[in-house]
Design a protein around this nucleic acid. Structure first.
Length: 479
RNA sequence: CGGGGUGUGGCGCAGCUGGUAGCGCGCGACGUUUGGGACGUCGAUGCCGCAGGUUCGAAUCCUGUCACUCCGACCA
């Protein structure tokens, strides 16, 4: 059977219209429904279960690194948000504001949090007094609101779910170490759990977070070559601490300002999963976050013993995997398509013929290859098959990232690639934001993604102005 | 926020030179089927996005508004 045969007619082909394909998948896989409020999505059980699996995995990683979860209020008094100048300027344009409580106009307007730096700082001011109180390694899982102009499920919504880590340290060195450590944490998570490779590095001055001294980013590439800012980790220096008057007494009995970090990833990662791994038959979920890892499809289930055997297998596998047995009376063909559309990594077919031979059929969602395996060591075979799916997804995504990364030696070549080859462009940069503006203007949207940790010496001149280059930058279009 | 497009049963759509709503899929019951989206019979489902206006009469014409979608500008 041809693997590329498009079996799900309702999904627009990704080659025809990638954006429409994305919207179709999100809806058909029952991840999301729209609500009555612009840009706010209902995350349906199947989509939310993915988020829960992401949360569970990440939360364990954070805790292993010593972080504690807290919960901050969702409202920020306007005066509080305004304490740090760059921060307000960055977020003011997209804030939702509460002006009435009950029947009365509020004496001070309340901002629905777009991010919680200010709340954390206001709290840290009260609980940090001595070097013995440091480091403070807090994280919270919550929703935030940013009044976006155009929205798309998961990628950009007015309200979204995320985690935001906020930490305080004795000095710059420790805070910087935390910043990089958490970026590494995200990178590991993307690779090990989501099977997504990415470019990581430092944001340029122009692309930094509002109020940060340094912003680090993880930038996975979507199937169509467009980048997605997949997570960020910021070093703040002591800017917020000074603005919020957070001080501690150090080992030498001197009053000091602590150094701060913040880092976050959001439900946008679900968008990254969809656009990195999905194909024309729908979603493909990395096994570690798939709500259903194995879909058991009984064949000729009306026949004696089939459902019994299927249930037996379900019970056995449920000890180690997330399993669903579909004994509805839809046709087997319908079920095959359904679970493919929903991205279930592994399908298990069991019918009379198999039972006779003490075996069953495993089908990978990625390759659609059927493997006959013995029922005797089924759990082991399933574990191997799931791991194979994970590895295949990662390899495939890595190949895509590599194939769609070009090198531009000079200005002309840069413009040519930007025009004709979707994906990342590696090129040298002088360090001036004017050149970033110019390249973006000329190419209609190609921006600097980051200065990667490992730079290559492509040339000694800026690919825009020709002046001496300071850094190699990875460029690309973004969601 | 600019420029296109779209809102009609759960989904996809037709109806739009005004006369009180239809098709396919899905849904429910029964029967036959069952290794890649099965078939038959019967049946249920609509404040035509919302609010005004024109008219004897509006899904249809006009105005406003809300939401969705695609393309730009802005951002996780």
């Amino acid at each position: 059977m041809a693997n590329d045969k498009k079996m799900v007619e309702q999904i627009t082909s990704m080659d025809t219209d990638f954006a429409q394909w994305y919207t179709d998948v999100v809806k058909k896989a029952e991840l999301v429904d729209y609500s009555g409020v612009k840009g706010c999505m209902i995350i349906r059980p199947y989509g939310y279960a993915i988020w829960e699996n992401i949360q569970h995995d990440l939360d364990a990683r954070f805790k292993r690194l010593g972080h504690e979860n807290v919960y901050m209020p969702m409202f920020i008094p306007e005066s509080l948000l305004q304490k740090e100048k760059d921060h307000v300027e960055g977020f003011a344009p997209e804030c939702a504001i509460v002006t009435i409580g009950g029947q009365n106009r509020l004496s001070e307007r309340l901002i629905v949090r777009p991010t919680s730096e200010t709340l954390f700082c206001d709290h840290y001011k009260n609980i940090i007094h001595s070097y013995r109180d440091l480091p403070k390694l807090y994280n919270q899982w919550c929703n935030v609101v940013r009044w976006e102009k155009t929205t798309r499920p998961f990628l950009r919504t007015s309200e979204f779910l995320w985690q935001e880590g906020h930490t305080m340290h004795e000095n710059e060195e420790q805070a910087r170490e935390e910043t990089l450590c958490m970026l590494k944490c995200y990178e590991d998570f993307y690779r090990e759990t989501l099977a997504i490779p990415a470019v990581t590095g430092r944001k340029t001055e122009k692309e930094k977070f509002a109020g940060a001294m340094e912003t680090y980013t993880i930038e996975p590439m979507m199937h169509n070559g467009v980048a997605l800012q997949g997570g960020t980790s910021h070093y703040f220096g002591d800017g917020f601490a000074r603005a919020f008057d957070i001080t501690y007494t150090d080992r030498d009995n001197k009053i000091c300002y602590p150094h701060q970090t913040s880092w976050g990833v959001s439900t946008r990662m679900i968008g990254a999963i969809i656009m990195t791994h999905g194909d024309n038959n729908g979603l493909i979920l990395p096994p570690k976050v798939a709500p259903i890892q194995v879909a058991i499809i009984p064949v000729a289930q009306h026949k004696e013993g089939v459902l019994e055997k299927a249930n037996e297998i379900k019970n056995l596998l449920s000890e180690s995997f997330r399993v669903k047995l579909d004994d509805s009376d839809n046709s087997t063909g319908w079920k095959y398509s359904q679970y493919e559309m929903k991205g279930v990594p592994l399908r298990l077919e069991i019918g009379p013929r198999d039972i006779e031979n003490n075996c069953c059929v495993l089908v990978s969602r990625v390759s659609r290859q059927k493997t006959v395996v013995s029922l005797d060591d089924l759990a082991e075979e399933v574990a191997k098959a799931l791991e194979a799916v994970h590895n295949e997804l990662y390899e495939r995504a890595l190949r895509n990232l590599e194939e769609k990364t070009s090198v531009a030696h000079d200005h002309e070549e840069f413009l040519d690639i930007a025009q004709n080859r979707p994906g990342f462009i590696k090129a040298m940069w002088c360090g001036e934001s004017e050149c970033e503006d110019k390249l973006k203007e000329e190419t209609g949207g190609v921006k600097s993604r980051c200065i990667p940790f490992v730079e290559e010496n492509i040339s000694d001149k800026c690919a825009c102005c020709g002046k001496p280059a300071k850094h190699m930058v990875v460029w690309g279009r973004q969601y």
